[in-house]
Design a binder for these strands. Structure first.
Lengths: 198, 198
DNA sequence: GTCTGCACTTACCAAGTGGTAAGTGTCCGC
DNA sequence: GCGGACACTTACCACTTGGTAAGTGCAGAC
C-alpha cells in the first residue's frame, strides 16, 4: 500500500471519527509516523486530501450501484438490491458511512462537495426505479423521494450508530439487532412497495 | 430574551452547521456583536456552552416524550406518537436535529455526552413499548431495537437532509416530499407492527 | 561522476485557538 | 454618595492551526 493510499485510509478513519475540523493534518501524519509536510507534499492541502477521501468512498458506492443496475432489470428487485447493497457497504466500512453522514450535515459546499456527484445520480436512479414499479398508481416525485428516504435513512442511520449504541447498551445488543437488520430492511421495502401497489 | 439564552440559540445554530470543532467561541460571540470574553463570562468554557445547548435540546425532547407517555396507554398508539412527535420536533427545529445527529456520530464522550441521558431512556421506552405490543410473538430485545431504529432512522435522517436535498434538487422537491413524509412514517410503523402481529 | 525527480525533513510564519487577568462602566440597595 | 454585584471590555497568554520555503538524502538515467 503506497504512502499516499495510507494517508487516505488514515484520514478517512480520523475524519469519520472527529469531522473535518476536528482533525489536524499534523495528527493524521503523526498516526503514520510522518510529518504534516509529508502529507502536504502528497496532497497540497487539507481540503484536497479530504476531497480524495470522499472521492474514493463515492467511487466504491458508484461502482457497486452500477453493477446492480446492469444486472437487475426487475424494478422492485433492483430497488431492493440497491438499498441493501448500500446498507452492506456501509456496514462493511462504517467509517465511510459516518463520513457521508457528516457530509449530509454540512450545508456548506466544501472540497468539491463530493457527496453530491455520487449521491444525486444515486437518488435519481432510486426515485426513477420506484416510479417505474407501479405506473398505475399515480405518484409524484416528491412522494417517491419520501419513500426512498425512509429506506436510506433506516439503513444509513443504523450503520452509523454502532459506537453510540455500543456505548449505551453494550455491543452485544447492537450485534443482536444487526443480525436482524438486513432482513428488517428487506421486509420494510417490500411491504412499503407492496402496499403501494394495492 | 436574555443574553445568555441568545448565546445558547446562536451557538446551537452554528454548532449544528459546522460542528463543535468547526465553530470558535469568538465566531459565536461575533454573531451577536459581543466579544468572546462575554461568552466565557456566562459559560466558563466552550464545552460548558455546548453542554447547555445539548441540555436544552434534550430537555425539550424529554418533556415531549413524557407527555405522550402520560397521555397514551395503548402501546401501538404510544409508540407511533412517540416517533411522530420526535419527527415533528426535529422538523420544527432542524438545527437541533443536526446537532443530535452529530452527537450520534462522535464516538468520543464530550461535554457530559448529553445525548446519552436523553437518548438512552428514550430508546429503552420505545423498545419496551414495542415489546409489549404483542407478547404472543416471541421477540428479542435486539430485534425490537432493530425495528425501532428503522423508525427513528427514517425520521431523523429526513429531518437532517433539507440543506443537502435543497441544494441538490431545489427546495420545491424537498417540500413536496415533506408533505408526504409524516404520513409515510405513520404507515411504515403501522405496517411493520401489523405484519409483526400476524 | 552528475543531474533529475521524488519522498520527506527542519525551520519558520501569520493567523487563530481557548482561556486568564485585570479592568470599566452601570445599575441597585443602602 | 458608596459598595458591590453584574455584564462586558481590552490586553495578554501559550499553544495549535494550515501552509510556505528551503533544504536533505536517495534512487535511477545518462
Amino acid at each position: 500500500m503506497s504512502t499516499r493510499d495510507q494517508f487516505i485510509a488514515t484520514a478517512q478513519r480520523l475524519f469519520a471519527a472527529k469531522g473535518f475540523y476536528g482533525v489536524s493534518i499534523a495528527a493524521i501524519a503523526q498516526q503514520m509516523g510522518l510529518t504534516k509536510q509529508a502529507l502536504l507534499h502528497h496532497f497540497g492541502s487539507k481540503e484536497k486530501l479530504y476531497g480524495e477521501v470522499l472521492q474514493r468512498i463515492s467511487g466504491e458506492l458508484m461502482a457497486c450501484t452500477d453493477e446492480i443496475i446492469a444486472s437487475r432489470v426487475d424494478p422492485l428487485e433492483r430497488l431492493t438490491e440497491l438499498v441493501l447493497a448500500q446498507y452492506r457497504l456501509q456496514m462493511a466500512d462504517q467509517d465511510a458511512a459516518r463520513l457521508i453522514m457528516r457530509e449530509l450535515l454540512d450545508n456548506e459546499p466544501r472540497a468539491g462537495a463530493a457527496a453530491n456527484w455520487y449521491l444525486k445520480p444515486y437518488l435519481e436512479t432510486l426515485v426513477d426505479t420506484l416510479l417505474s414499479i407501479n405506473s398505475a398508481r399515480e405518484r409524484s416525485r416528491g412522494q417517491a423521494l419520501a419513500a426512498i428516504y425512509q429506506f436510506l435513512g433506516a439503513a444509513h442511520y443504523f450503520a452509523v450508530s454502532q459506537p453510540t449504541l455500543g456505548r449505551m447498551f453494550g455491543d452485544a445488543l447492537y450485534n443482536e439487532a444487526r443480525q436482524h437488520y438486513e432482513e428488517e430492511l428487506r421486509q420494510m421495502i417490500e411491504s412499503r412497495l407492496t402496499i403501494a401497489a394495492r
